[in-house]
């Protein structure tokens, strides 16, 4: 089984940075609730980089193994001790300054999209706390105009882990196709600035751009 390193970029929508979130998460308990599985998160920060080891425990204790004894196949069932749990693991290393990094994943482990959703949920919580802290440290009246302006900056907190797709690699992948019919993408993921809009293919009101090409 292959374990792969994929690149990502974390985008954040409020003054709370990825680094601030990481520092906040480091103060939390290792055990984190997310989805059905129990997660254990070990985080570190050093020299401008975020480091993380993410563990996902399995609910089952037994595993089946196919054993070949001189050509005779049998199935052996192994079990972990009562005080042990089977785990899958992921690693993450990221530059704090650019919020870009690498994520190690393999089949069965915590995939990057799900981990991104986890970070987003924690980012929302941390943003709310940071918002009130910012209002507090401004010494402005809590219901005044200045406090409102501060709160506005923390409105709709969103953190997204976007997978990096290098243009050359994607082009190679698409080039294997004989012809191209359409390109679908969620409009909600668009982050382009309006000045770039006219330089791209114009998005349709729907989320599909119908294309047409013949074989080369």
């Amino acid at each position: 089984m292959k374990a792969r390193l994929i690149g990502f970029e974390a985008t954040t929508s409020t003054p709370l940075t990825f680094q601030a979130l990481w520092s906040h998460l480091r103060t939390q308990n290792h055990e984190a609730k997310y989805g059905q599985a129990k997660r254990l998160i070990y985080l570190d920060e050093h020299d401008g980089h975020a480091y993380g080891l993410l563990l996902t425990t399995k609910s089952h204790k037994k595993a089946c193994e196919l054993v070949n004894s001189d050509g005779t196949l049998t199935i052996s069932v192994t079990s972990v001790a009562d005080n042990s749990e089977r785990i899958d693991f992921n690693f993450i290393v990221a530059r704090m300054a650019t919020q870009k990094g690498l994520y190690l994943q393999y089949r069965g482990s915590w995939n990057i999209n799900s981990f991104g959703n986890f970070l987003h949920s924690r980012y929302s919580d941390a943003s709310r706390a940071a918002r009130e802290q910012a209002v507090e440290s401004s010494n402005a009246p809590k219901s005044g105009k200045k406090a409102k302006q501060i709160r506005e900056k923390y409105k709709k907190p969103e953190l997204e882990l976007k997978v990096i797709v290098r243009e050359q690699k994607l082009a190679e992948l698409l080039n294997r196709l004989n012809s191209i019919q359409s390109f679908d993408f969620p409009l909600s993921t668009l982050t382009m600035k309006s000045k770039n809009l006219s330089r791209c293919a114009t998005p349709s009101p729907l989320n599909t751009i119908a294309l047409s090409s013949g074989p080369m």
Partner: peptide, 18 residues
């Protein structure tokens, strides 16, 4: 497509072809 993905920051989607 590649240029649009880069400019628009699209990270999810699919290309359909033959």
């Amino acid at each position: 497509i590649v240029k649009t993905i880069g400019l628009a920051g699209i990270s999810r989607g699919q290309v359909h072809g033959k």
